[in-house]
């Protein structure tokens, strides 16, 4: 699964992008989204929880949300005139019962 697949834009979780040189750096950019699962998913997950294993519904939900957070981070970077975000970090945290925040942040840079 590729995150933040935007044409002409690169994101990296390391400080450098192999084969490219960073010319300018602009500062921290963030992207976040808070999502809740619906009751149906809750009930299915509750059942699944008995036997263990992957909770597919949740996997998809969190993956979708992470994708959205990444998109928002890229939007912020683009609004600064950047064409890459480096040193990207992801975080997931439970904000309230049934709602989770997906958060992505990194440094907006311009690469050659």
């Amino acid at each position: 699964m590729t995150l933040g697949a935007v044409s002409g834009f690169t994101i990296s979780n390391t400080e450098s992008i192999p084969g490219r040189r960073i010319v300018e750096f602009y500062g921290v950019v963030t992207g976040n989204t808070v999502r809740a699962k619906h009751i149906g998913r809750d009930i299915m997950a509750g059942l699944k929880n008995v036997v263990g294993g992957e909770l597919k519904g949740y996997t998809e939900l969190l993956q979708d949300s992470r994708e959205e957070a990444t998109e928002r981070m890229i939007l912020q970077a683009q609004s600064m005139g950047a064409n890459a975000v480096v040193n990207v970090r992801f975080a997931t945290s439970s904000i309230s019962q049934g709602a989770a925040e997906l958060f992505a942040y990194g440094t907006a840079v311009r690469v050659e």
């Binding site: 010319v23 602009y26 500062g27 963030t30 939007l75 912020q76 609004s79 907006a108």
Partner: peptide
Amino acid sequence: KYVAKKPEDGIN
């Protein structure tokens, strides 16, 4: 080099 820039407000 560092260039001071600000992201657009309200994206998040």
